[in-house]
């Protein structure tokens, strides 16, 4: 169970806006997060990951406190270790596909499985610049899964994939999420694409 309540000031186009969310995510659930641009969806994911610090808030994950601004508790991202898929992929330009996964884990069996899942097994020595947009996005997803995270935070993870690839990948991921017993939060602009995958949603106005 993830128990979350945060307040964070956002820089908005016109003046200031406050992101205020209280929500509970059941362990093992897959939640779709949607809402208008600039509402704070990415900020919410980064706050949970420990990459952004809110003015006020408390995050408790499976009875471990990750953040409590009142008591000055703030676990660094290295201790939270979420599987994070960035909207801009955040791939390392100096690393090949294989090097990305090896940077995250030493488990070669797991790496091989992920490469097959993301259909990148024939491109292991390619650097991001030599991958297509869809391949880059898949690599970003695989890298996040490489650490076998218990919490997976995905920011528009399927936006660059063609419909067939998307359907296939989502079906595979659904099984993998179950296997990892991971709690998953997915930000999406396209509510239809996640049909059948998510079991709850959170609207951020």
């Amino acid at each position: 169970m993830i128990d979350l309540s945060i307040e964070k000031r956002l820089k908005a186009y016109r003046g200031q806006q406050i992101l205020k969310i209280s929500h509970q995510f059941t362990t093992g659930s897959i939640t779709k997060i949607y809402g208008p641009s600039g509402a704070g969806k990415t900020t919410l994911l980064k706050t949970i990951a420990g990459l952004v610090y809110p003015e006020k808030g408390k995050i408790v994950v499976d009875s471990q406190t990750w953040l409590d601004t009142d008591n000055n508790i703030n676990l660094p991202p290295q201790k939270r270790m979420p599987g994070f898929v960035f909207q801009d992929y955040a791939l390392f330009p100096n690393m090949s596909v294989l090097a990305h996964l090896q940077y995250a884990t030493n488990d070669m069996e797991w790496i091989k499985r992920l490469l097959l899942l993301g259909k990148l097994d024939t491109l292991t020595d390619h650097k991001p610049i030599h991958l297509s947009g869809g391949q880059q996005q898949r690599l970003a997803v695989l890298r996040a899964l490489a650490i076998k995270p218990k919490l997976i935070l995905m920011d528009e993870p399927f936006s660059a994939l063609d419909p067939d690839m998307k359907t296939e990948l989502i079906a595979e991921l659904k099984l993998l999420f179950k296997e990892l017993a991971a709690t998953v939060l997915i930000v999406s602009h396209n509510p239809q694409e996640l049909e059948g995958l998510t079991d709850g949603d959170l609207y951020i106005p």
Partner: peptide, 25 residues
Amino acid sequence: VSLTQASYALGKTQWQTFKSVLVPN
């Protein structure tokens, strides 16, 4: 900044991130 953030989320320290992600790029 997301390069550093991605590395931190993988559990890497500031030094590992500097050495393996920032300097080579």
